[in-house]
Design a protein around this nucleic acid. Structure first.
Lengths: 334, 334
DNA sequence: CTGAAAGCGCTTACAG
DNA sequence: CTGAAAGCGCTTACAG
């Protein structure tokens, strides 16, 4: 199986490589007969252009990198897939890079910038912190999705996200309204301005609005995996066994907590109510069906691609879009 | 933030581009002082080579594509991650391509072959069928993992997999031994020689060994998603309500079935036993904890990389490795 | 509508 | 140990 080059095709079709290149790139300025002849030869040879060679000539169309941090995260996975879907009718080409949750997305971005001459970024599942400043010199369109970049101080950064603070507040409010007072919150470090920290602030808002104050000893820093959440919950409930409700900042964490509760003989929701976050498919099929704050995947994706192409193709300045999340009350909250 | 090329570095360091290239590729034949000077300049400029330009010179090291079919599949995801882990100390470089479950992995392979001049493949989650013959002319190392390529008729194909037929048999046997006779099997098309079809043959083996025969009307072709399995199970149990046990060919399918059962008022495992396949993390935390056939991810991954590098670096002929799966009896089977 | 030629950034024989 | 030069496969002004 010989690998044909544009030169081989040109020779077989009796035209110049320039013409083959034109056909390859769907340029209009090619005679119909010539085009068809070249296309026939390309088809017969199963010709596919060499991406390296093409990439080397930078002046081609835009190349956008989608960097997904959290490969095992079902929510981000689904979101990335949806973004890719919306990407189909863009002029730019996209490459997707899945990195580990613990990896550094900004380092990855820098590498892609050099290695592949990328000229646009979509960050899926990034937490924007001081590391982001490695990108501050960059004058490329970049869109953060699921996290607001409003406070990031990156001049060319746009973002699409839900109102995490309001949604954190809503989750806590749901529990407070149902009479819960001993409420635990399972999240991560709450000192930044990332989406998880905002949800935590929302929790405090809810308590304040109810004339109460959140008991910080019921805040649990956990890893965002089933195993991590399970272990954290076992340890937490051994000490704070009087807790009657949990707000977990992801559905995965919520499910780990549910399993732990059931293993220590506490029923969900009869003994302990649990509300998650994200609105994953699994949550709908878990027993009990998970109450959650559902992020609008479809809209996050379409807005993200829209904001990016506006910046890339029309030079529109970056903007920060807020989309609506939805409370889904299912079986796990009483 | 200027993007430096090898030429810029050469100029700044006062050497030729050849020398910079040598340093870049860790060639031994560079004077230590020269090397250090060049390295200093590269570091100062945050220099990263242009992958396109490098890729264009094919004679570089090997490039292996890992093609993962089934992006949303947690088992394949975990397996791909483990493979990537084992890949770290290989001389070759690897690129990972996640494609949809419905996409054609062989088309993808062909594209990568041309576009990127790949010279080795790892197929994760492929089903080998007639489409595979598009690769039959290819004299490149390719390793199929989770599915045996023994019967595929591809001369350069190796494979690493469990004994799917034996494991299908074991799953059915577990249910038969516990007195179940009205057993449903949730799988896919069972006419090929892919791993799912083999598991089906294993089921028949188990029935035959017990002096019984499998009731084909209890074979359910389902999509391998929570939603698909749920819908299939609702439809199936509306007709075959006397079924007392289910063998689902993936944990995801098993969980969809469990949820459906609970929604029609059948308890798992008291009324219906369910056994899954793969051994996903979620299965351990589901309620009820899922009984399953656990695939040895770690060993599948290490063997896959080993077989590939043996072929690639040492010219060893392709081989077909069988690894051991493990029965995990948990709560969902009575 | 078509082609000859330069050049993208790198690697690699080939000389020295 | 080091460098000048050719070439990887493609794209794109520039001519015609």
């Amino acid at each position: 199986m010989k690998i044909y080059t544009i030169k081989d095709i040109a020779q077989k079709a009796g035209v110049s490589v320039t013409t083959v290149s034109r056909v390859l790139n769907h340029r209009p300025d090619v005679n119909r007969e010539t085009r068809e002849k070249v296309e026939r030869v390309m088809a017969a040879c199963h010709f596919v252009g060499n991406a390296n060679a093409r990439g080397l000539k930078q002046t081609e169309g835009d190349l956008v990198a989608i960097i997904v941090r959290g490969h095992q995260n079902p929510f981000l996975n689904a979101l990335a897939e949806s973004i890719l879907q919306h990407t189909k009718d863009c002029r730019a080409t996209f490459l997707t890079e899945f990195i580990d949750e613990k990896a550094d997305e900004f380092q990855t971005a820098l590498r892609l910038l050099h290695e592949r001459r990328v000229n646009g970024f979509i960050f899926v599942g990034s937490r924007i912190d001081q590391r982001a400043h490695e990108l501050s010199g960059l004058d490329l369109p970049m869109v953060f999705t699921t996290v607001s970049a409003q406070q990031a101080g990156l001049p060319s950064a746009a973002s699409v996200a839900i109102d995490d603070r309001a949604m954190g507040r809503l989750a806590a409010q749901v529990l407070l309204e149902r009479g819960h007072r001993k409420i635990a919150v399972f999240g991560a470090s709450r000192t930044g301005s990332d989406s998880l920290s905002l949800r935590y602030l929302g929790v405090r808002d809810a308590f304040t609005a109810a004339g109460l104050s959140f008991d910080e000893s019921r805040y649990v820093e956990t890893r965002f995996s089933l195993r991590g959440a399970y272990d954290s919950a076992r340890a937490f409930f051994a000490v704070k066994g009087d807790t009657t409700a949990v707000f977990a900042m992801s559905d995965t964490v919520a499910m780990g907590v549910c399993r732990a509760l059931s293993d220590i003989g506490r029923r969900v929701p009869e003994d302990v109510s649990v509300i998650g976050f994200d609105g994953t498919e699994m949550g709908k099929y878990y027993t009990p069906r998970l109450s959650t704050i559902e992020q609008p995947i479809e809209e996050l994706a379409s807005q993200t691609v829209l904001v990016l192409t506006d910046m890339l193709e029309h030079g529109v300045p970056p903007r920060h879009v807020t989309v609506e999340a939805t409370l889904r009350l299912r079986e796990s909250v009483l």
